[in-house]
Amino acid sequence: MSDGRDTGPGRHVIFAPVGEGGRVDVVARRISEAIALGLITDGEQLPSESELAGALNVSTVTLREALSSLRQQGLLETKRGRGGGSFVRAPVDASVGRLRGTLRDYGVHELREIGDHHVAIAGTAARLAAERASSEHLDRLNALIDELAAAETVGDRRRADGRFHIEIAAAAQSTRLTRQEIDLQSEIGELLWLPFGEAVRHKDVVEQHRAILAAVTGGDGELARAHAEQHVEQGIARLIQFHLQLAKR
């Protein structure tokens, strides 16, 4: 990395070796998150393919596939020839900058507080929903998961994700839990679905929602609670990670 803008500890994390067998989506995600968080900026040139593959400890084939998926998302542009390479095309969406600011301004403690609160609400709501949800609720929850699975934009994903949690609380027949869930969703929903930097992988969220719903449908309150708590904790842990990357910059 030769442009001299790559010295912050936040950036260091981006180009650290990836685990999980160095899969394409892990690499693509790592880079797209860095763009979403503003750790690499618009117009910036990425290191050469071999350099980047070396830093991430993945094969050049894997890296190329990852870069190609980022190009498809419009996050990278490749110029050929002398002075060519992969250049970052950061999304111009104004909300990204605002969300980034919000995420930076939160303290780790505040994020953890939100997480603790959300774990309490979502966990209890899931446990009670397992006792009290009618088949209509289960149908609606199922439809919301399908909606989330099919959602292409972050906005649609955030809405379907939030609605699922709100409906779980409503299925628990509790106006108070539902109100709190709505407040929590409006507090962190946008951050969890940061454009190009989704805190939790879309397909993982879908799977986690399915696991929660399966436990609710089976009437297993404790399992539903465990799944819901884990799901929420995972999202918050990622937001704390994002925050630290932004704050260290």
């Binding site: 709100i166 609380a169 409503a170 027949q173 509790s174 106006t175 539902t178 109100r179 709505i182």
Partner: peptide
């Protein structure tokens, strides 16, 4: 119902 009317009245 009874149901949680969360978007409207916020009541059961």
């Amino acid at each position: 119902g009874p149901y949680v009317d969360y978007a409207g009245t916020d009541e059961y």
